[in-house]
Computed example of a mutant assay.
Amino acid sequence: MFHGSGLFALLLMVLEWTRPGLSSPLRPICDLRVLDHFIKEAWDAEAAMRACKDACSIATNFTAPLTRVDFDVWEAMNIEEQAQEVQSGLHVLNETISSLQASNQTDVLQSHIDASISNIASIRQVLRSLSIPEYVPPASGGEDKEMQNVSSISELFQVHINFLRGKVRLLLANAPVCHQGVS
């Protein structure tokens, strides 16, 4: 978790970017240090789950997005396809992590679950600021080939870390709005 002044500084940045009450569009959030904050919190959650072991275990499989990136395939995709893949993965992570809220967990796990859900919502806000299209579920309702099953909460949070470090970072780093006017 962020400590005192770091949390306050992040809050000020987010408030400045979102400017509540103003009708103007969000300013693009192109600074990858914002994503680094969310990655650090995901690391903290994963480390807490590893340390928690039996008290934080649930005997079930979780659905999670694939984190592997084939760079040739990724580069061949247009920004909308990349955005859809990232948004789909964030949606699955949010749904899976949210499903943990119903289980009777330790206070430590519950705080990491709540923080992760909040962080995913914040990442979606960052994506909106970059004019990245929101997630649109597939009309067919078929199983997404970009998913995997994981068997522990620790592994789920490891996927969360890798997804943020991989596909989310690639999308944010190459967002067209962040490169306008840059030659």
Rank of each mutant, 00 (worst) to 15 (best):
A47V: 12
E95H: 09
M49T: 08
E41Y: 02
E81F: 07
T63D: 05
Q84N: 12
H37V: 15
D70R: 14
L32C: 07
P25V: 05
W43A: 01
L32P: 02
A76F: 07
E75R: 10
Q84H: 15
L35N: 00
C52E: 05
A83T: 13
A45I: 00
P28Q: 15
A42K: 01
C30R: 02
A47H: 10
M77D: 05
A59L: 11
A59C: 08
S99Y: 06
S57K: 01
L90P: 04
L93Y: 12
R33F: 10
L100Y: 00
Q82A: 06
A42I: 02
K40T: 03
D72H: 12
E41C: 07
E41D: 11
L90K: 04
L32K: 02
V34I: 15
E46L: 09
Q82C: 08
L35K: 00
P28R: 13
K53R: 15
R27G: 08
I79A: 03
L26R: 11
V86T: 07
S103T: 01
R33W: 09
Q87E: 15
H37S: 12
Q82F: 04
P65V: 06
S99A: 14
V86I: 13
K40D: 04
H37T: 15
V73M: 10
R33Q: 13
R27A: 09
D36V: 10
D70M: 12
I97R: 03
A102Y: 03
F38P: 00
S88A: 15
Q84R: 14
S88C: 14
E95S: 14
R27I: 05
V92K: 08
T60Y: 00
F62M: 04
E41P: 02
D70C: 14
D44T: 03
L32Q: 04
C56V: 01
Q101S: 14
S99Q: 11
R50K: 13
K53P: 00
S103K: 01
I97L: 05
T67Y: 15
F62H: 06
V92D: 03
D44E: 10
A45D: 02
D44N: 06
A47Y: 11
Q84M: 13
A76C: 07
Q101K: 13
S88K: 11
C30E: 07
W74V: 01
T60M: 07
A47T: 12
I39H: 09
W43S: 01
K40G: 05
A47P: 01
T96Q: 02
A102D: 08
S57G: 00
N104Y: 00
A48T: 03
K53E: 10
Q101P: 00
F38R: 01
